[in-house]
Design a protein around this nucleic acid. Structure first.
Lengths: 173, 173
DNA sequence: ACTCTTCCTGGAATCATTCAAGAAAATGCC
DNA sequence: GGCATTTTCTTGAATGATTCCAGGAAGAGT
């Protein structure tokens, strides 16, 4: 994937959703597009770097509005803050690293939405199946088994539950 | 309430995990056993009703300790607080109602853990697959389509994303 | 250009969760 | 059964993500 990523028509998508085209919104879309799975804080920081200054509320409001209009997709791995990505319509899922909180996209094997339906939903109407894979990313696995490498925020054997992730530990700088 | 619910050997499980047997811990286990998917707040309230008084921290500490020792299982649907259930070892998943936040258990169709593995994990070691089904429970569906029935905490058409669930709305009174 | 809707700013509130230090209780040994 | 040790509970406060409120500013269409 080279960086010929010509910016999709954010303006068009906003207009199509009946939303006004504002600089903060364009900047938010741009940031989320370049840096998927970003938290609200990270988005705010990068938007500020891009267009000077925005209030935190503007960012939250924008993120919520765009999410409501299906331009963004929001998800929230347990123990971390909300994260956002461009809503592409594909039904992909997320791999979350217990070591560094990194998130990777994985395409849904089934394709249909919801991609997996329980057998006896007891009258429940299932609209969406959200799958989160928990594990260890390649980097963290390497730095754990290789004592020469610095263990990056990883200290224990990382059992299925022994990860006391604090609400505030939201990934990278 | 008759107390025919003969207590499973909490004492045994605690001892087996090398934990001390204390009244708050027994009470927490009892409450979570009787009322699965309870939030920390709810657990605290019910524990207080049972043994008089416990500090909120004791509850949180207990819940965390028991979770770390695989006696409890913790999960956290996006937009709501942590919820707890007894760790039974079966790999079941959760149906979450967008209307009333109710949680239902559904057995895992696959059986194995992790029950679904992505095709190309890119070096990622998957330890666990967590599936959350989002939808509408029977009650909420009924009260929505039937205008005579009281809409129970439901007001909108509840699209896939248009549910601005506040962090504080954690289910039932 | 003008008006009106919509959005952004700034400050403050809220709620869940955690941290810190001392008091109380449970366990194991004698 | 009593006592020392270790673990756990209490009290009080901090943190951090997210949202609410009210007023002012900037877009869009006419």
């Amino acid at each position: 994937m080279n960086r010929t990523v010509e910016v999709p028509s954010w303006t068009g998508r906003l207009r199509a959703a009946g939303l006004r085209v504002t600089q903060p919104r364009l900047a938010v879309l741009d940031v989320v597009h370049q840096d998927p799975h970003a938290s609200a804080d990270q988005v705010a920081a990068r938007v500020r770097a891009e267009i000077g200054s925005v209030s935190t509320q503007a960012v939250y409001d924008t993120l919520n509005t765009l999410t409501e209009h299906d331009i963004l997709r929001r998800f929230e791995p347990a123990g971390s803050a909300m994260r956002f990505e461009i809503a592409t319509g594909d039904n992909h899922h997320h791999l979350v690293c217990r070591g560094c909180q990194r998130v990777l996209d994985v395409p849904c094997a089934m394709g249909s939405i919801p991609c997996a339906v329980p057998e006896d939903p007891q009258g429940f109407v299932v609209e969406e199946a959200e799958v989160t894979y928990w594990g260890t990313c390649a980097d963290c696995a390497a730095s754990r088994s290789d004592p020469t490498g610095e263990p990056s925020a990883v200290e224990g054997p990382a059992t299925a539950v022994s990860s006391p992730v604090t609400k505030s530990q939201v990934g990278n700088p």
